[in-house]
Design a protein around this nucleic acid. Sequence first.
DNA 1: GACTTTCGATCGGGCACTCAACGAAGTGGA
DNA 2: TCCACTTCGTTGAGTGCCCGATCGAAAGTC
Lengths: 418, 418
Amino acid sequence: MGHSRPADQAGLRRGNLALLVRTLREHGALSRAQLAVRSGLSKATVSSLVSDLELRGLVHSAGISAGGQGRPGQLVALRPTSVSGVGLDVHVGHVGAAVTDLAGDIVFRRRFVCDVPALGPERTIDHLAELATAALAEVDGLVGPPVGVTVSVPGLVDTSAGTVTLAPRLRWRDVAVADELAARTGLPLDLISVDNDANLGAMAEQAAMNGESGDPVTDLVYLTGDFGIGGGVISGGRLVRGSIGFAGEIGHMGMDPLGPYCSCGRRGCWETRVGLGALLHACADPDDPVRDPTLDLDQRMRMVRARAAQRDQRTLDALHQIGSALGVGVSILVNLLNPAVVVLGGYFAALPEWLVEPIRNQVVAGVLAPGAGGARVVGSRLGFTASTTGGALAALRRVLDDPTVVPLNQPEDEEAPA
Amino acid sequence: MGHSRPADQAGLRRGNLALLVRTLREHGALSRAQLAVRSGLSKATVSSLVSDLELRGLVHSAGISAGGQGRPGQLVALRPTSVSGVGLDVHVGHVGAAVTDLAGDIVFRRRFVCDVPALGPERTIDHLAELATAALAEVDGLVGPPVGVTVSVPGLVDTSAGTVTLAPRLRWRDVAVADELAARTGLPLDLISVDNDANLGAMAEQAAMNGESGDPVTDLVYLTGDFGIGGGVISGGRLVRGSIGFAGEIGHMGMDPLGPYCSCGRRGCWETRVGLGALLHACADPDDPVRDPTLDLDQRMRMVRARAAQRDQRTLDALHQIGSALGVGVSILVNLLNPAVVVLGGYFAALPEWLVEPIRNQVVAGVLAPGAGGARVVGSRLGFTASTTGGALAALRRVLDDPTVVPLNQPEDEEAPA
DNA sequence: GACTTTCGATCGGGCACTCAACGAAGTGGA
DNA sequence: TCCACTTCGTTGAGTGCCCGATCGAAAGTC
């Protein structure tokens, strides 16, 4: 067990500051008295903590609470523009960036199309650094300084070193992404982290689910749908990373020893059955524009959608086939992990009307726990943007976990551009 | 996220008391000065904490530290006999009990053979209560009072309610184990918890691994080997329970849509290929004593071992076949969870010489991460006793996480039986 | 307009940890 | 033998944090 750090009063304070920030994120503006009730802290402590957060610029007064008896409360609300989080994304066909404010709302998003495997790490990171610099310049004045930058990479990542160990699809190996990015952007190295795209996608989807409904989702499985399939697992509210951070490599589950050959050299990997390649092969001939790699993927997905909507039999058959094969693997995941939700990301998210049903059928049939252990299967609403959004949220988490990373001493002068 | 409790100074104290207890468990007897260095606390705080733990009877002086310059330190050591943990076990063919001291060493173990499905829940819990009462009577005087009792059940468990939701092999459904046991034994209800056998086995194996080697194992997969196959997953040092506690139901992963029918009604479940039934069928004819259900399982396993050691071809083939089928499933687990160790429990633990090798081969071939992501495959040394041991450890964890559950005010009179 | 209710600031108190100082208890050399 | 020297563990002052109680402030109610 690694939890071997002593607890001191500073940590106690940090924890309670974070508790208030979380409470405000979940419930919106609250008075100090309401905060005291919801957090379980005393009014006196809440007053002290709120004034601390005010000095850090993380919260501000937000009017007077509505009717009721007695003295009205002075509402305290998160100041979303106080800080920002930056998510960067290295994909096979593009690099992307997203910036969110403290509330998690996107304030900037951009994508730069490029052939990453052909460019190589050096020049790709050049583009990434440009994108980051442009993003920060563009949001300057709108939101406060970034509290973190997280780079999403589809591959095996050493998060503690900020390096990519192996990313076959990018043809990257042992790339010091954090170092290189810090050197190019001038951002401090300790602000930059690197993580797997499926992990970040899972975080983004979890945040999206918790933003809307009642019960917070603590157990979630996220599937990236692309040529390769990745998995992000959140269990008990925490990411499952594995002993050296390689968890979630789900695309290469062996589903059929006699199945088609996979890029990894083995046969019958799950992604040979449910990856984007499998869909495209099943639903279109080689000269079909749907299979034209020079076209934008979103556009090709819209074509598939249109055909399915018009009840084109070949397309429907292909989708049903993919959905069933997905269901077999999802059943394994649900049996093993008992998630509350399975989120279909990537290209799956463009086709939920045809994929979710066959998956659900397979899962209900294939899971031992009654009612599939309560697992829902849903399409992502973030689609291909999940990993950048998740990166920005991961960056914000630093503040949410420890608000003292934002310095004190900013009593006045906010982002009012002269 | 559920971590919404305010932190106060009492919690801080609890955390630091627990920190010292953990440090002493890991490093053995230490002086106060050494404790201060290892824990990161100040000498003054350590003195205060140690005297607190002394008043609770959890530690005691243990001589003077050896040579070196300066004043020798007064060693402080855990007092293993101060409290005890009780693990109870409901199995298909027996009920069992184990009691450990604070160090995790077994001080009592007993098994009562009975046909649990035939007896039904009521009478089974009668036996369990008898066993528990006998155990506590027998260890009275040897160790202190139990800080918890954990019941291991092979099935789906609602840990918060202490009930068994569904245990097909026992033919139990919605059995209030904790309540019933409390009523029969007179033990306070809040001391009793109920958990899945694979979860407890995983905890026991993790503790066993960390007891010996250097690096603590935080990511581990445990497989129960019986007629059914269960999985216990520890990720980042914490059990993966799933959204409603049904995680780890790994025996019913669909491995082959055309495979043999399973007791769950589906085809090709993993346990039809690697469960005890599969082994027995593959290695012996129906009239072979190995397949005589009236014989003790340990004894039958010894027969299989003997034949394999004598290079009986049919036995070797059977073991190789089981090992390969195990490897396919283990590869999935390793790809998804990237554990540091996969522990083979239950009947697998009796045959590691013939099972580990084919599994390793499959895993190395079937896992994307280089070198199988560092995953080792090992046979359990606890075997069928893992779940009771794990139950006792789970009970002890209450003290390890919060030493203040043991009351103060026991300055004198220890367990010196008149 | 007085009463009631609720809010939020403030103060004193208790608790936990830290630092610095000091006596205690050994070693090693003169 | 005696005296530095080193290290240990306790003690007391100091600081920071949370809490309960108190009190003035700011509304609604009668």
